[in-house]
Design a protein around this nucleic acid. Sequence first.
DNA 1: TTTGTTAGTTGCAACTTGAAACTAACTGGG
DNA 2: CCCAGTTAGTTTCAAGTTGCAACTAACAAA
Lengths: 222, 222
Amino acid sequence: MPEPIISTVDIVLLIIKDDRLCVTLSKRDKEPYVNQEALPGGYIHAQDDRDCLDAAVRILQQKTGLLPPYLEQLKTFAGAARDPRGWSISVVHFALVDADLILSATNPGLTIWPVDALRRLPFDHNEIIATAVERIRNKSQYSSLPCYLAGETFSLPRLQKIYEACLGETLNKVSFRRKMDELGVLETVAGQTESAGAHRPAQLYRLKSEFKNQLKLLVRGL
Amino acid sequence: MPEPIISTVDIVLLIIKDDRLCVTLSKRDKEPYVNQEALPGGYIHAQDDRDCLDAAVRILQQKTGLLPPYLEQLKTFAGAARDPRGWSISVVHFALVDADLILSATNPGLTIWPVDALRRLPFDHNEIIATAVERIRNKSQYSSLPCYLAGETFSLPRLQKIYEACLGETLNKVSFRRKMDELGVLETVAGQTESAGAHRPAQLYRLKSEFKNQLKLLVRGL
DNA sequence: TTTGTTAGTTGCAACTTGAAACTAACTGGG
DNA sequence: CCCAGTTAGTTTCAAGTTGCAACTAACAAA
């Protein structure tokens, strides 16, 4: 028989800070775990559509003021052990955003932590973040996903650092550039370069507009 | 403010029949769409744990009598348009099983349809099945996933047909065998061969026991 | 024993990859 | 003004991977 259930949405908001993959946490304003830092989340409303993507956008807007350039459903977590109040269900999403957008926005109570040096968090949020990181790692191997962590324009050396932070390993410069060329999601920003010191400046790139909201995959397969 | 919600689980049960990827539907015993064929589904109970995997196992058992060798959460579908009764949420799973298990089980009211020639189904079930097929296709490119469609023992030519049905394209025989070797999830069944006519019989293989419940990935990456 | 059919292997040319060594473009100090 | 230091970007090439064609292997049936 059906039992009515309180359903929530949580969001793993990921950014790159100091060349490391980081998660953004917000201070809880309600019990349980009030004032502790946890994944931003909230209740699902009956008007939320698009498989809870609407709810995720609304909650992210509320808690961070951001409209992320990339948002994807991650997995639904449910069970009796995850919340001290009893059985619960949460449709978890992950969002990618340029770190500068967070730092420049007015974000009281938001904090940023490297995903590989996280302390014990409330609920099953450590497990959720681990799942999100696994997904990012996986997709970073063969898609343009990490581009959404890079902001409007960026150099290839910077993008390579971002890929490396996502994958947790260093990449070959030549191979990386070949693959990016093959993916075909980038275009040069005419005449623009990134000068940052006493050395050759780097060419700036941006995502082609047709890929602004769509991942490009590059699968080698069997 | 929280609103209590009726939550369900639906299951996309996939098999290979006549070298084609097929979905198993069951006749609905309740309104709406009573007596129409749709994905097997049911309500989530408060004792269901493991992120609704328990619910999926229970419902699959009820509707098909099967305990599938592979079961994975696919995606959560939610919104106002998917059910005539109003806003609803469903945590959808997909299961892979050897076709023989379905045909041999006593399964009143179960029917099997090729995923690429499906008529209009109730709710958003066409969209759900399309999402499942996309996921299978994706994972078949670089993992041992299709092995779960093959039963206990199988020949490499048969497994190749299964991969081809999942991917929707033919594969090179030598490359396929090299990749399977590289994946390392198979072992020969000593002395056993599959004879099926006037020709050389094929060596039989099975999944190594350590991979019975775990996908092996083979990613070439950037 | 020959023929047809499917299983499984070998050889090879074309392509992909990764490391090292190269050239390019800038700043700042002598 | 030029040289050293630093990072950007390209070239070269050897090693590895892939996909096709042609091969050999094992069976049944005629």
